[in-house]
Design a protein around this nucleic acid. Sequence first.
DNA 1: CTGTTATGAAACTAAAAGGTTTCATATCGA
DNA 2: TCGATATGAAACCTTTTAGTTTCATAACAG
Lengths: 124, 124
Amino acid sequence: MAVPSQKHDVFQAIADPTRRQVLKLLGEQEMPVTVISGHFPMSRTAVSKHLRILADAGLVKERKVGRETRYRLDAEPLMELKRWLAYYERYWENKLNVLKRFVEADDGKSLFAGLEPVDPETKE
Amino acid sequence: MAVPSQKHDVFQAIADPTRRQVLKLLGEQEMPVTVISGHFPMSRTAVSKHLRILADAGLVKERKVGRETRYRLDAEPLMELKRWLAYYERYWENKLNVLKRFVEADDGKSLFAGLEPVDPETKE
DNA sequence: CTGTTATGAAACTAAAAGGTTTCATATCGA
DNA sequence: TCGATATGAAACCTTTTAGTTTCATAACAG
């Protein structure tokens, strides 16, 4: 119930440039497939498929209005991406990367190794 | 020169679960292909290909040490992802989403439309 | 009712992705 | 020098992906 069976995950969904553009477009405003596909050099059916993939990942929601289906952005699943990304932030935070990684990995023992191009390959 | 020709971009690179695991593994420590592939249920060659894709996206760096090649994480390209993601943060920040989007899009005119299920389909 | 519009499903295609196995090359160790 | 180790390149295979075209269905407008 929490995870709607998801054939496609967020990482996969945003891997395609077209789909990223679609997301951006739908951020502005809800719109039907025909309008969306007007922004792309491909058939409406192709865009429709992209929309299904996005919907699968939970990134867009659909709403029927008469004979048309309106699509809109749901950014919530991007939080997973954000969390994933957060893990790596420490690696680029600043010039202290090397030191920080070293300290965290080594728990403070041998504090001064690894600050030079010392290379763990000298391990024996 | 700035952009190293990149056949693969970051979005594509992290789309594959195996590659995400490789990244995580390499965050801990630099290591050669043989060691890396020991963590995966596939051939060394397959892992090697994943590494080339990651390297293509700039996410890993290689260093030759004798007969082996050591790979290590370079998280820098993930900043592009972070920037991309930042755009969407406003959509999940809090319950004021609807209001915020409306205000930003409309530049303050007609402040009270759109707060109800008003639906732009009533456009004529 | 009739024709037009909006859309998804189906069938098909070409190219890319993710693997495998085999082979060539370079470095190590003795 | 010789055999073992580490690795990338090549050729090949299978499944997915991104598109296309065609078709059926549902809702609208007269």
